[in-house]
Every structure is written in C-alpha cells, then in structure tokens.
C-alpha cells in the first residue's frame, strides 16, 4: 500500500527526482554549479527551447505532433533579421511571432482539412518552411549589429536576462490556457477521446488549429530571442530543435498519446537535458560521453515513468 504510493509518486515526479539528484551530484562535484549566476545562465540559454516546449505541450496533449517548430523558428529568424536591416529593428523583432502564428495556423489548417496525421504533415511543412527560409536569405547569412535589435537576447533587467522574464511569462500564459480556460479543457478532452469530444459538440478542428497556431507563435518568440542574441539570421537556425522540444515534453511526463500532461513538466524536461549539458561543461568532462549520458538519462526517466497513466 505504502510502497505503491511511493512508486506512483516516483512515476509522477520522475523528472523532478532526476533533476534533484543531478543537482546534488553536480553541486557536490563543483563549486561553480550551485551559483545563481550559473543557474540563471542555464535558464537564459535554454529559454528559446523551453518556450517552444511549453506550447508544444498543448499540441501533444491534444493528440498531435509538431515536427516543424525548428523550421518555423528558421523562417521567423531570417524574416526578423531581414526586416530589421531593411526597415526597422523593432518591427523585425515583432514580425517573428506573427510569422510563427501564420505558419502554425497553416499547419493546423492542413491537418484538419486533409485529415492527415500531424506527424506526417508537419514533416512536410517543415521542409517547405525550411525551403522558404533559404529563399528569404538567398543562401546568405544576415548579420544584424544594431543595439535596437540585440537587446532582446542580450540585455538584463535586475541582473536577469530579458529572455528569462519572457520564458516565465510564457510559461504562466501556457499553464493558464491549459488549466483555466475552456479551450484548455477541450485540449485535454480531444487528446483523451476525440470521438467523445465530437459527440460533446466541441469544435475539434478549431481547437487543434489553435494549438498549432500557439505552437507556431512560441517558435516565433523563441526565434526573436535567439536571432537577437546571436545577431545573425541564418536559414539553418533551429535545426533539430523540434526533436529536442518533443524529447523534453515527453521526458517531463506528458503522455505521448495525448490527453494528459502539464506545462511545468515540459520546462522540467528542458532543464533536465540542460543540466546534463551544463554538468559536462563545468566538470570539464570528456564531451565524447555527453550524448551517451544524455541518452541513458532519458532511458532512466522513461523507465521511471512507465506505467503512468
């Protein structure tokens, strides 16, 4: 009775348990780890990925997949840089999330109109979007060295990077949508049982389109932060980011089958991956072992979580 409670607790909070274990190990092995500076750095560096993971949580709970977030990220990045140079840096930053929403909306429309599984359709759109990004740049890099543009990724307010505030606001927003609004309720219902949702009169297509648009929006915000930080628009931005984001969401304990999950879990998933990375850096460990270790930790988390509803 008590042991089952412990097992259930372990399943529910596997990702947090691993984070705590890793933090204990890292702080015992290095003085540089448990400092506000290092921890804030980790948060700041991973803010773009974490923002995408927050929104992707909605898509995965509704029962979908978005493999195009990396490509949306690229289109938003290069458009942002291009407009910053040719028109205005502020409009450049603002355009990124707008483009994100448009591309995410397109994803949603394609999925609901043609009734294709999002896994397949977003692989296709990711190729289209990536191609679009290459066309925008003409194959060149777009450097943007303007203070009006780079502040978003580099400036600090009260010793904390702007990106971290944006992440916090975005995480709260995503959580609020998911847990406090009608559309959040519908997202859970559709992912849990689509047939029942249709019979309950839920506008299933509308909700799915919303989730994908929101995910695109997040990729756009993430792109604005990143392009401003590295002050360079490149069509290769965000390569592989979609898989990292999905890994983080699932690692956090959101069900891959849809119907259950939480935004904080995805952020925890991102942080777990980030801590492993950070550990290798501050311990000066052989980077050859990094992928191997990351893979083993993911397996451990999955093993702990298995059997969770």
């Amino acid at each position: 009775m008590n042991s089952t409670k412990i097992i259930n607790f372990g399943r529910d909070y596997a990702v947090l348990i691993l984070i705590v274990l890793l933090m204990i190990v890292l702080s015992l092995s290095s003085d540089a780890f448990l400092t506000p500076r290092n921890l804030l750095n980790i948060l700041n560096q991973n803010a773009p990925l974490a923002i995408i993971a927050c929104a992707l949580t909605l898509v995965i709970i509704v029962g979908g997949f978005d493999l195009s977030t990396g490509a949306i990220f690229a289109v938003a990045s290069v458009s942002s840089a291009w407009i910053a140079i040719n028109y205005n840096p502020y409009i450049g930053l603002l355009i990124a999330p707008i483009i994100g929403v448009i591309l995410g909306y397109l994803n949603g429309i394609i999925i609901t109109t043609f009734k294709v599984h999002s896994f397949l359709s977003t692989i296709a759109t990711s190729l289209v979007f990536r191609g679009l990004a290459i066309l925008i740049t003409g194959g060149f890099l777009i450097p943007v060295r303007m203070k009006e543009f780079t502040w978003l990724g580099r400036e600090k307010i009260f010793e904390v990077h702007v990106a971290v505030y944006i992440l916090i606001i975005f995480a709260i927003l995503s959580t609020f949508i998911l847990t406090r609004t009608t559309i959040g309720r519908y997202i859970f219902a559709i992912g849990g049982n689509e047939d029942a949702s249709i019979l309950s009169g839920i506008k299933v297509n509308f909700v799915k389109i919303f989730a994908f648009s929101f995910c695109g929006f997040a990729a756009g915000i993430a792109a604005a932060i990143q392009v401003s930080r590295i002050s360079l628009g490149t069509s290769q931005a965000g390569l592989g980011m979609e898989l990292q984001a999905i890994a983080a969401v699932i690692l956090g304990g959101t069900s891959i089958y849809g119907g259950s999950g939480a935004v904080w879990r995805s952020i925890a998933g991102v942080m777990l991956l980030a801590l492993i990375n950070n550990g290798f850096n501050i311990l000066n460990a052989d980077p050859f072992y990094k992928d191997l270790t990351t893979g083993l930790v993911i397996i451990a988390a999955v093993a702990l979580t298995s059997g969770r509803k």
């Binding site: 309720r185 219902a189 849990g192 049982n193 029942a196 949702s197 019979l199 309950s200 119907g259 509803k309």
Partner: peptide, 15 residues
Amino acid sequence: QGLVLTQNTKSNISI
C-alpha cells in the same frame, strides 16, 4: 464515445 477517461469527473461533466 462518451467519456474522456484521462479526465476527472468534473471535467467530464461540465464539458
């Protein structure tokens, strides 16, 4: 067709 088993009683009823 009727219930969302991953959701609790309240969410199922008020949906």
